[in-house]
């Protein structure tokens, strides 16, 4: 398969950083990077899901306004995943960019992060925060957020099973 982007993939794959992440025997290379990606996932999606469930009425006694203080933890999770995800992409650019699921995942990241921002700025602020479980707009955002996390984690996991190329010119052997 020759594509317009092949020289671009080759350039990244031949870089020292890419070769180190892929080829190093060190546990601090690929294994640690992908492990950080799982930790970031758990704090970002897990923390966001907890806020969503509270908006939808679970643990209603818990102050929603006070839950907003968890937002920095979620953003830290996102930062960890933006960095670790970029490093994983540098390690295997052809693998990701030739897989349609990867583009779906990118779209879902934009949606999920956008919803965390929207929920943080609109739902978790204002005079009637604690009554948001009755607010239709807030409930819609929370449901959308939960759906996006389910889809996002699914696409992330599927990236390990749905790729056709591992590296430029190297087919996956399923």
């Amino acid at each position: 398969m020759d594509s317009f982007f092949d020289p671009f993939f080759a350039f990244i794959e031949n870089s020292e950083l890419s070769e180190w992440i892929r080829g190093s025997e060190s546990i601090f290379a690929f294994p640690t990077i992908i492990t950080l990606h799982a930790i970031g996932m758990a704090f970002l999606a897990g923390g966001s899901a907890a806020i969503d469930l509270r908006i939808l009425g679970l643990a209603r006694g818990m102050s929603l306004a006070a839950m907003g203080r968890f937002l920095p933890v979620l953003w830290l999770g996102f930062a960890i995943n933006a960095v670790s995800g970029t490093l994983l992409l540098i390690a295997y650019p052809t693998k990701a960019f030739t897989n349609p699921v990867f583009y779906l995942k990118l779209g879902l990241i934009a949606l999920g992060v956008g919803l965390v921002y929207r929920i943080g700025t609109t739902v978790l602020r204002g005079p009637d925060v604690e009554l948001k479980h009755k607010d239709k707009h807030a409930r819609t955002l929370a449901l959308a957020s939960l759906a996006v996390w389910v889809a996002l984690i699914t696409t992330g996991r599927l990236l390990g099973y749905t790729h056709t190329w591992i590296l430029l010119g190297v087919k996956a052997n399923f």
């Binding site: 758990a42 704090f43 999606a45 897990g46 923390g47 899901a49 907890a50 968890f70 996390w149 984690i153």
Partner: peptide, 9 residues
């Protein structure tokens, strides 16, 4: 994810 989002929080 749920485990960290509940017990972790």
């Amino acid at each position: 994810t749920i485990l960290i989002g509940t017990i972790g929080l």
